[in-house]
Design a protein around this nucleic acid. Sequence first.
DNA 1: GCCAACGTTGGC
DNA 2: GCCAACGTTGGC
Length: 158
Amino acid sequence: MNYWLMKSEPSCFSLDDLKRMPGGIEHWDGVRNYQARNLLRDTIKIGDGVLFYHSNCPQPAIVGLAKVVREGYSDHTALDPREPHFDPKATPDKPIWFMVDIQYLCHLPQPLTREDLRKHPLLAGMGVLRKGNRLSVQPVTAQEWQTVLALNGVDDPL
DNA sequence: GCCAACGTTGGC
DNA sequence: GCCAACGTTGGC
């Protein structure tokens, strides 16, 4: 079991949007970075925990929890010329880009802002705080996962 | 809106 | 294979 932090701009796709999807499930498409692609294709597994992070917004924060319900498969938005993340080099046989499906679990009663993370000794080392870190999918340690839950007084849903 | 950091592209 | 130019990300 592994844990991940996934970033999304709430003006584009928010945790509320995920909650509203049928079954609370949506595919995590549009990732066009090779390092993140490798994680989506090879490493992220069904049942893994996801910290849902809102980026590029007035209050960037970890706002909720999700879990992985489908492992890496072809990101079809790379094959469709009408899609903003269309990649002419991708083909059905060699998709290049991959995505996973995640399912909504809950909102955090107390979203954790960057300031919250920075001031907590067990969270201050999180990748999302590192300057210049642009990975939209990044690993989270079990300790970080448990600390985020403990600060919110929520039981581990996984 | 600014700007630093980063990944990608493409000429050589 | 180097590296400058460029586009994007994302906090502030």
